[in-house]
Design a protein around this nucleic acid. Structure first.
Lengths: 206, 206
DNA sequence: ACTTTCTGAAAACGCTTGTTATCAGATCAG
DNA sequence: CTGATCTGATAACAAGCGTTTTCAGAAAGT
């Protein structure tokens, strides 16, 4: 690993790895989700299979890296938005959802990796189950904190329902099946979330 | 196509086709959704590839047949339950959801083919998008009829949200991640559905 | 200079897939 | 019995996959 082209060995390797992750994001988040093959991702990254296995033990490791990258990016942004919002529960919901939607609209590949129903990679599907659970736990934790509800299986169900509904909604929106602006989308989702959260004690509102 | 073993040719062919669909349902609705290969489905059906192509032009045709069969079965049962219920909107929702849950609990393969998130067949994924839209249209039609709401993009969004949330919930329940009885599951879903439906005019209830 | 190492392209290996063809033997029709 | 046809098992084919290896040449170290 000596210096090459004025670049250190570790830097070159990191650069190649980043190119592979970026190409993987292109393919995983593209229209056809099952197109992430080693040959294809290398072609798109302008590299050869030899360099693929320099950074990843196998194909699944790249898929995991791409998904991890996306989850980290999105979760960080959404959580920051929630914490920056006031103490009001609905304000938190609105801030988190707005930031989430903004993020997936800015880079639709991220949204598709997280939510698109037409992605058919087996490992990605399994990881999505876990990240859905993760997001659901975040939600239910927020609910216990803001609404003071106990941690029951029914709360878990509600959180799963919200995550699944949001995923389907964003997937449809990203695919162009829902003719709504970003603001309308956020408003509708906030409405639904608060309706579910308040379902047993609806506020006196018309 | 002469008589063989006392069975007419058409009957034998139909029998073999039914065995293939049943085996396909086993595999598509099994734990690993990507195990439906021609060789495997034939092995499980006790037939050989030659008979596969006697009834299906290619692998995708079998996947489509299995999915179609499941959708028809479930939709028929759920619609019948809705129509048998009284004119009250919540009663209809409860009847439809209860029958849907009963159906997928009776034969979990059906539930998984329709809802499981870990099924990664590309054609099945595409068909699910369409059937989700179909179910969403059924729902929004019901809403327009029962609640008199106009057919806006926001109604479409709400329907998609409900379908997606229900799919995630049933998928989690079938996988054993939600420790709830069938009755509790139905009750919780009804609660969520009515909360969303009534979100702008909540009934005066504690 | 010469040797080591990194690069990029390509070929190779072993496997699974969908799909089609082969073939010996069982079962029917006449 | 004779010959046509259905059966079931198996092999064949071409393609794509993940993964490993080979190899000629460019760049660096000494």
């Amino acid at each position: 690993m000596r210096v090459y082209g004025g670049v250190t060995g570790a830097d070159r390797k990191a650069e190649r790895r980043a190119q592979l992750v970026e190409a993987g994001l292109d393919l995983l988040g593209g229209a056809e989700g099952d197109q992430l093959t080693v040959r294809r991702v290398c072609g798109r990254a302008g590299l050869t299979p030899r360099y693929f296995y320099e950074s990843f033990a196998d194909r699944d490791e790249l898929v995991a890296a791409v998904h991890e990258h996306v989850v980290q990016t999105i979760a960080t942004r959404a959580l920051a938005a929630v914490e920056a919002a006031g103490p009001d529960a609905e304000a938190k919901i609105r801030a988190g959802l707005a930031e989430l939607v903004r993020a997936v609209a800015e880079d639709r590949r991220h949204g598709r990796v997280l939510f698109s129903v037409t992605l058919t990679d087996p490992l990605l599907a399994r990881r999505r189950v876990e990240s859905s659970r993760f997001f659901a736990r975040l939600l239910s934790g927020q609910a216990r904190q803001s609404y003071g509800v106990p941690d029951t299986p029914e709360l878990e169900l509600v959180a799963q329902f919200m995550v699944g509904g949001l995923a389907q909604t964003l997937s449809a929106w990203l695919s162009g099946a829902l003719r709504l602006s970003e603001a309308e989308l956020v408003a509708a989702c906030v409405e639904i979330f608060t309706a579910i959260a308040d379902r047993k004690a609806p506020p006196p509102q018309g």
